[in-house]
Design a protein around this nucleic acid. Sequence first.
DNA 1: CGTTAATCGAGACGGTACGTCCTGTCTTCGG
DNA 2: CCGAAGACAGGACGTACCGTCTCGATTAACG
Lengths: 207, 207, 207, 207
Amino acid sequence: MNAMTTVSTEVETGQERKAPGRPRNVQADEAILDAVIGLLAEGQSAAAISIEAVAAKAGVGKATIYRRWANKEALLVDAVASMKGPLPVPEGKSVRDDLIMLITANRSGYAKRYSKITACLLPEFAKDEQMARTYQAVVEPRRDIMRQVLRRSVESGELRADLDIELTLLMLAGPPMIQNMLRWNPRVPDEGFAEALVDAVLRGAAA
Amino acid sequence: MNAMTTVSTEVETGQERKAPGRPRNVQADEAILDAVIGLLAEGQSAAAISIEAVAAKAGVGKATIYRRWANKEALLVDAVASMKGPLPVPEGKSVRDDLIMLITANRSGYAKRYSKITACLLPEFAKDEQMARTYQAVVEPRRDIMRQVLRRSVESGELRADLDIELTLLMLAGPPMIQNMLRWNPRVPDEGFAEALVDAVLRGAAA
Amino acid sequence: MNAMTTVSTEVETGQERKAPGRPRNVQADEAILDAVIGLLAEGQSAAAISIEAVAAKAGVGKATIYRRWANKEALLVDAVASMKGPLPVPEGKSVRDDLIMLITANRSGYAKRYSKITACLLPEFAKDEQMARTYQAVVEPRRDIMRQVLRRSVESGELRADLDIELTLLMLAGPPMIQNMLRWNPRVPDEGFAEALVDAVLRGAAA
Amino acid sequence: MNAMTTVSTEVETGQERKAPGRPRNVQADEAILDAVIGLLAEGQSAAAISIEAVAAKAGVGKATIYRRWANKEALLVDAVASMKGPLPVPEGKSVRDDLIMLITANRSGYAKRYSKITACLLPEFAKDEQMARTYQAVVEPRRDIMRQVLRRSVESGELRADLDIELTLLMLAGPPMIQNMLRWNPRVPDEGFAEALVDAVLRGAAA
DNA sequence: CGTTAATCGAGACGGTACGTCCTGTCTTCGG
DNA sequence: CCGAAGACAGGACGTACCGTCTCGATTAACG
């Protein structure tokens, strides 16, 4: 999380020291994040979101936002994080089906908006390591699910024992992203893309 | 190119009609593009570039910029385009070496900045089809080089005859992009990444 | 005047150098000053006037105001200056009547608002000499009229030859100001105040 | 005083009802007032004083201030009141010396800051009768001293029997205030001002 | 050679949003 | 109940850019 949680530490150390003063209104956090998501839903682009609009929609003062997030980007990152639906759970029947499901899961519903915003935030990651780390805290758990699917398949002998799992992860995550970027291009595959990708990757990864 | 070339038509119709009035200053075009690139070089992020700063650095009036490009993004796209060094020419000795070279070519010198800006412009592509097409005019020639390398290798029998070339293109272009995004992540491979990627792709693509 | 007239110098030096760029819109100056005065008329106190409200009422961008005045106070001073109605012209029949008229002139119509704002701006004068000088450019002409009335009466022998005219000016201008401040106080005289004051001053000033 | 003394009533009614709960910290009152005065001393203008700064400097919560004063202006009035040194006591040798002393007493030391703040608060008096009355409670005792000096002189035959004492008070208090406002103006008298003023007033007031 | 028309640098225009600051109120805890 | 602490909604501040516009001054080709 990126919120400037001056107050509570996530890892509690024995007897907790309560912060003095009026505690932050937890509903405000939700209202703000909801407002961001709402604006993204209505709205055109992530860049077009203004803090002032968020404050207005959330029924909140601007200061209440700036008290929690240092700037617009940090807020957007957290909004993205709050938006990522439940972690998808692979069924475990076959590597192929699991991977296809995991890839497809990123392209529908919440996850669709999620990847849209993700794209908008890339510039921030490129320049701000802190921001990048924050984002990774969001992404890594999802990457980990895929990692475990691969790891299990290696152990079960379904995939090559010397498979470079990290590289394979990138090979599964990268192409969909580019495919999305170039989706206007008629030469870029669309139908059955996920299946074809998984098949191609597995072809080089099979035991 | 995205420039609003009101003056010259690209498809010349026999005897050309010269536009009346003072012709545009060609040096201004260069000065503006150079200024953008200069600011990107000094500067932090592509989003932080302002037309006003560009105009100032180029020693040019704002109107002179807006006469040529419809908005900031269009200018950035053209700046990116002007910046992409010469198209890389594969040696043709082996698919593997050619692909590695093509992937690596995007990650050094000019091309490094190029991909940084590319990332900044993604949001624009996502929302504006016109912008996306403009950008593709820049990218497609480079993708085409890789496409031809693959095509030749299929014809020479080095790669499988039923290889999905478009999918393979994405598999070669996508992972490096993600790898760049997640470069802070210690788990993400770094050294020898291009070689490993090409090997993995070829393993599934070999005849 | 306090306006940051970077452009034109009031004292022209032979051949005038025209400022480059689009010239300032003179109507905007008026619209802004009118808006200030309008808000003062509607409004409660001079302190309650916000630049944003002025800009809105004048149909003008905030930058257009800040381009002309460095801050709110400077704007108010100029608004006061623009508001001071025509200089009152004494009839010249008798010192007494002239002075009574001049004192009373400050307490009606425009001048009433004028002195209200004046009071609001006092703190600024106290701290900022530049602001004070600006204000004096507004006040001094009016003081000068009274000064001339006194001077003429000294020359005509109606008043003492060794009269301290500057002191007398203060004795005529100061009491009305305090009387206005303390107007809630039942002990402070109200009716016939101007006449009584002039009589008292003349009693000590008569030849 | 303007303080909202909810707790203690000044006129005790037989058996006193002790307020329940924790009594107010009397040191806080002093600390707050001291903080205001301190900020005025350091600071530039009275308008620039913020409750937050006062609270911080006094080491006090904002609520503690608002529990005692309704708003910033009321606080400033009380600070002024607390600051006015002891009431000056005229020696009684001669009207002239007494009046000069009383006028001069307002222009040195504490009293100097006192008149500065007074100027800052004028706008409040103009708009808020309540505030004005509060302020008069501070000023009137001082005016009363001068009133008594004049009254005694009338009774002793030193001044005219039909002297308008209230008018004369204004004639003695108003000019110094204006003189202070216009102190940047080279034409406004400075040296020996108090003496000259008293002399001029007495000239018209003498028996 | 003068007219015409689009260019140039410069910078003002109406706006929008920024991130900071302060106001006056409210809400927690501990004394 | 008072105290310090500090969060809250609201709103103005002064700044920075946006994309458009309007200046006087160039700069060609057309007539």
